[in-house]
């Protein structure tokens, strides 16, 4: 079974083509990183997979079944999406926000409470549980939303057949919490959950992604393992930046260092 499969997918929700000919396959337990310059279509691709944008041509299957064929509630039990921005401006407590993630499930109050606890622990938000969401800092809000997303798909021991879409989950987090969130995503992947992640810190991305897909202007320009994708020519062509590609001293994944243009 593939968790997610896209074949020749194009999308043009407002007339102009946003995504052109996207094709990839995601197995259970793998992490796909989406990279590309601003406006390349990374968030649009996540929205497409989440069902917010309809593909104009091509095929999109989730767990071997067309995305639109899923009953909404059943799909929500195994597909969760963390958007870049949160609009929530009502004074829920942190615990109430996380509990909203259990809406698609009817697993009962007690088991919901257990899952909410797990999600709070995974994101280090248990100590915030009685705080009001509107009074949190940006990073605390981000961790709370992440906990809500985790609570939405947790439940079974095996998460094979579940999919998490994370749009910049670490953009407001300090170094310690970035590592914590990476550990949490890694744990979920070990249990079979597939993930699609947009992170602007490409070294962070290389440390968790099994595959990387690079988008430029809505087109898929590179797709493969971090080793294959991160090359000096790619960074020159797509990002217009000169880099050297090294390796992490312990883990061995590729690490990039931008070279400053010489100032005359």
């Amino acid at each position: 079974m593939n968790t997610l499969q896209l074949k020749g997918v194009c999308a043009a929700p407002w007339g102009q083509a946003l995504l052109k000919d996207i094709a990839f396959t995601l197995q259970p337990g793998t992490v796909l990183g989406l990279a590309g310059p601003n406006g390349a279509g990374k968030s649009s691709l996540l929205q497409l997979i989440a069902g917010d944008i309809q593909p104009s041509t091509g095929q999109l299957t989730f767990c071997d079944r067309g995305l639109t064929e899923w009953p909404p509630q059943e799909r929500a039990q195994r597909l969760a999406f963390l958007p870049q921005m949160s609009l929530l401006s009502f004074p829920y407590t942190v615990e109430e926000v996380v509990r909203l993630g259990r809406i698609p499930h009817s697993s009962g109050y007690q088991s919901d409470s257990d899952i909410v606890e797990q999600a709070l622990d995974l994101t280090d938000t248990a100590s915030l549980r009685h705080r009001l969401y509107t009074q949190l800092s940006g990073g605390e809000k981000q961790r709370t939303q992440l906990a809500r997303i985790f609570a939405q798909i947790l439940g079974q021991e095996s998460l094979s057949g579940s999919l998490l879409l994370l749009d910049e989950p670490t953009s407001a987090l300090d170094l310690a919490h970035q590592q914590l969130v990476l550990m949490a995503t890694h744990q979920l992947a070990m249990r079979g959950c597939a993930l699609v992640v947009v992170i602007h810190d490409l070294n962070l991305m290389a440390s968790i992604a099994d595959q990387i897909l690079v988008l430029d202007n809505g087109c898929q320009v590179a797709y493969g393992s971090p080793e294959q994708v991160f090359t000096t020519t790619l960074f020159k062509e797509v990002f217009g930046v000169d880099v050297t590609v090294g390796h992490h001293p312990q883990e061995g994944y590729p690490m990039i260092t931008p070279l400053r243009p010489t100032l005359l």
Binding site: Q47, Q73, E74, R75, A76, I103
Partner: peptide, 20 residues
């Protein structure tokens, strides 16, 4: 009530929680 609680998160968030 449940649907309205989800809607406070935003419309697409509510949709992602399986709300019609």
């Amino acid at each position: 009530a449940g649907a309205l609680n989800a809607l406070l998160l935003g419309e697409s968030e509510a949709r992602h929680l399986g709300i019609k």
